[in-house]
Nucleic acid binder design. Structure first.
Lengths: 242, 242
DNA sequence: TAGATTGTTAATCGATTAACAATC
DNA sequence: TAGATTGTTAATCGATTAACAATC
């Protein structure tokens, strides 16, 4: 995990003039904390555009996004001087820059696997189109579900999944069936050639193991964070009574 | 935001013997980073219990949870000496301690508002019961949905929501309808007396504004993080080609 | 006892904040 | 020009890691 062993070389590269400071690491590498904030900036800037706002100051935008003005300006550095001193930021240019970083506009394609209530709710939501992702197919293991019409697509059996993904160059598999073992997913996706997995099942998937990026939607963890906060407040009340 | 203004008092409280170090802040106050890991520990320990594992070392548990052994031991301090040197941790005691902190066992009650596909999917999932939350009612604005049977409960109209919550001392409101303005939620929950909100709608809610803890499920943000990671890898590939 | 593993300290790393000079 | 607001530096804060003494 460590990047530098302070004792194992006799000199410090930063002490050499001309090398020091030129590229402290890779100047393009964004800190993880900023990456986690990108979707928030994306959402808030989109709202500003919908309200026809053309310019925004770090103070205003930071209020909307729930970060400090200082932090916002620190973050915006990575999008290359889109601000103007004395004026603020051009909303549209900032939005475009952040969208590009997030891969909106790359037109990724997806299939939903699992045609239950969750799969249907997702299919009908605006989630995908708003973010430049195109759902090209829906699949299910169950014979009862296959053939069913889902908006513009027909639910197919999972035995067709691999061929469909390869023929249509599908990028993302959305896991919407209640799976019990992660091997179920590994088996299903083997040979499909997708380059990303969006996982709504109860089993946490590991991107390292699958070899492609994975995002897990951990609703259970979220519910626990809620009961934690509620419990902290309840404990405080109990203490005040005693 | 700042906790301390270094220049505005003439002395440093930590320099006074007997006060310094006794309670650096509140010794019970857990760091935020640890709080965010609690649901992970909860889930992993539950899995160990289901597999009848009785003891676990910091090395083993940290592997399972995806943290470093050092970090895990640092975290476990807050649960008060549940480890034994040369042996490890008692799985059940650790699980109980973390569960209690998370508020499992407080038996919170909830209502689901919105009887669409998402609401139905949530109602039928094991999410709530596994975490000690009891769903006592389902509500919807639509006349078409009210009266429908949802497992053991009947869908009620939202006009009954407030009375129901008060009569049944409901703790949590689960927002499952596609709302466009946060005022819709504020209006609906006013006078319901719930002490927590679990929000699946597209509009982000703010706990400060509502006066109770809120957890937002931001599926859109998650999808953006996935396309970000995919895009980073695609960019790398493109560079290698060029 | 000897081996194993925790609890704890100090060092390091990364993220945030404050402040102000640069400049539109 | 004068006022406003960014870009950037240095200080601070909080989280993580390494290492080892304490002890089961």
């Amino acid at each position: 995990m460590r990047k530098k062993e302070p004792e194992d070389t006799g000199f410090d590269i930063n002490s050499i003039p001309g090398i020091a400071g030129r590229s402290p690491k890779n100047s393009c590498e964004m800190p993880q904390a900023l990456i986690n904030r990108l979707p928030v900036y994306f959402r808030c800037l989109r709202d500003l555009i919908n309200r026809d706002v053309l310019k925004v100051s770090s103070q205003e935008l930071s209020d909307i996004c729930g970060v400090s003005p200082s932090q916002l300006r620190q973050d915006m550095k990575y999008f290359g001087g889109l601000g103007q001193r004395g004026y603020g930021y051009n909303v549209m240019r900032l939005y475009n820059s952040i969208s590009e970083t997030l891969g909106v506009g790359r037109k990724y394609s997806a299939v939903i696997i699992g045609a239950g209530r969750l799969g249907e709710a997702l299919y009908e939501s605006r989630l995908f189109e708003q973010r430049g992702v195109w759902v090209k197919g829906v699949f299910d293991v169950s014979r009862e579900k296959t053939g069913k019409e889902f908006g513009a697509v027909t639910v197919r059996g999972t035995e067709e999944l691999c061929d469909f993904c390869r023929e249509n160059r599908i990028d993302i598999a959305v896991i919407c069936f209640p799976c019990l073992e992660k091997e179920e997913v590994t088996g299903l996706l083997k040979d499909c050639g997708v380059s990303g997995v969006w996982n709504f099942s109860q089993v946490r998937l590991d991107g390292e193991e699958l070899g492609v990026p994975v995002e897990n939607i951990c609703t259970g963890d979220s519910l626990m964070m809620l009961t934690y906060e509620m419990s902290v407040r309840d404990n405080r009340k109990d203490e005040n009574k005693a």
